[in-house]
Design a protein around this nucleic acid. Sequence first.
DNA 1: TCGAATTTGTGCGTATGTATC
DNA 2: GGATACATACGCACAAATTCG
Lengths: 254, 254
Amino acid sequence: MTDTPPYLRIADELRARILDGGVVAGERLPSISELAEEFGYSGGVAQRAYGILIEENLVVARPGAGYFVQSQEAPQVLVRHQRVRPGQGSPVRVMLVEQGMDASRRSESATARADAVVAERLGIAAGEPVVHTAYVHLADGVPVQLTDSWEPMAVTGNSLIVLPEAGPHGGIGVADRMAVIGIEVGLPVERVSARQATRQEAQRLAVQPGAVVLAVERTHYDRSTGRPVETADIVLLGSRWIAEYGIRPEPGAP
Amino acid sequence: MTDTPPYLRIADELRARILDGGVVAGERLPSISELAEEFGYSGGVAQRAYGILIEENLVVARPGAGYFVQSQEAPQVLVRHQRVRPGQGSPVRVMLVEQGMDASRRSESATARADAVVAERLGIAAGEPVVHTAYVHLADGVPVQLTDSWEPMAVTGNSLIVLPEAGPHGGIGVADRMAVIGIEVGLPVERVSARQATRQEAQRLAVQPGAVVLAVERTHYDRSTGRPVETADIVLLGSRWIAEYGIRPEPGAP
DNA sequence: TCGAATTTGTGCGTATGTATC
DNA sequence: GGATACATACGCACAAATTCG
C-alpha cells in the first residue's frame, strides 16, 4: 500500500532538510551522483526528485554547478484597486517604491492596426489604427512585469498624448494622460486568469518556459460615455505576485 | 540545426491534425502503439507527445480507452465584484445558473482551531475556535471550484448561523447570513494568485496534478467595525475560469 | 589558455501497474 | 477473464555547461 516511490521519498527527505533549516538559502545540495549513491538508485531518480523541488520553487539548478537552495521571498501583494493619486504612476511602481526598490521600465511604442481580440476589447472595428506600447517593468534591474497596452487613435490621435511615454505628458499613467485631453476614467475593469508563460513571455521575464503567471486583461473606460479608451495585457510571475482587489472598510467609515 | 526531436515532431503532427479540423472534438486519436509503429519509435516517445498536447488542453486521455480530442470551451468569466443580490448565492452559482447549467455543491463543516495563517487573516489569535467549511462546487456534476471557508466562533458562535449550510438560514451565502445576526459586510477583499494545484486539490477537482489554478484568498469584513468575519480559500481551474473585478461605467451614469 | 573532470539537461527505451472494453 | 490501452517508475546514453588545475 504505502510504497511511496523512491523519487518521492528522496524529494521528501531533501524538502525536510531545506524546511528544517538544515541547509541555508544559496547553499549547494548533493549532486545527482552523490544522491544516487547514497540512496542506491540511478541518477534519473535523484534528478526527478530535484525536478519536484524545482517545481515547488524550493531549489534552483545551475547546469554544471549543482543544485542550490532557492531563497524564499514571500510573494508581494500588488494592490490594484486603490485609487492611484495623480503622479504616482502604475500599481507596480507604487509598490516597488514603497519597498525601497529601484523601479524603472523600458518601453516601445508603435502604431498598428487592431487585431480581432484587441478591437473587441476596445469596441472598435478590427483594422482600425491603435497605438501599441510594450513595457517591461524592472525592479532593481530584474524584470517583474510585462505590459502590452493598446489605445485607439480615434481617442488620442490628434493630441499631445498619442505616445504614452513621450512628449510633455509622457510616462504619467493612463488616468492622468486621459485627463489631459478631458477624459475622466474610472477604476479599470480587470480580468484575471492563471496560465503558463508562453515562450516569448518566459524569455522577456527571464524565467523558465512553463512558469506559472498571472495574466491580467485590463480595460479603462471613459466614465461619461462608457467607451473603452485603453486596454492592456499584464503578465506577472505567479510565484512572486498576488493581486489584491477590494478595499478593507475602516473602523469609523460610513 | 533544425533537428527537432521525434516526440516534438509527433506532437506537432497531431496538433496540426486537430487544429485543421481533421479530427473532431471527442474523436479518438491513434493509440500509443499505433503511433510508435507509424513513426518507428518506442511507445515512450508517442506518450510524451501526447503529454504535451494534454498540457495544452487539446487532448484528454482515458486509460484503457485511448486518447481523445478535447472539446475546446472558452474560459468563462466569473464576475466577482458585482454586488450579489440577496438570495442569489455565490458568484459561481450566479454564473452557472445564467449559463443554464445545473449548479450544486457538496459541503462539510466542522469546528476547528485557527492555524497561524487563518488566525492572521481573521485577526484572531492562533488556536481560537473557528468553523471550517469545505465546499466542492459542481456544474452539471463536474467539480469546478473548491472553497475552504473559516468563520470565527467569536462572531457566530451563539447564533443560528453557526453552520453555513445547516439550520433555518443554511446555504444563503456569507453576506445574507451575517445580515441575520446584524452584521453588514461590504464587498470582500480578494487576493488573487496563480500557481499549480496541489496533489489534494488536483484530486478534488478531478484534474491532473500540476494543473494551473487561480487561487483566491477572500476576506469579508464587518463594515462598521472593520473586523474580519469570514475568510476563504477559493481554487479555480485556470484553463476554465477568468475572474473579473471592477465595474464598467454605464453611458449615462453620474 | 586549455583540457579533463564533474554536474546538470534531454531524449529514449523498457518493465510493470492499472483501468477499460 | 483476456486483450488492449494508458500511467508510472526507472535506467542509460549523450550533450551542454561549469569548474578547476
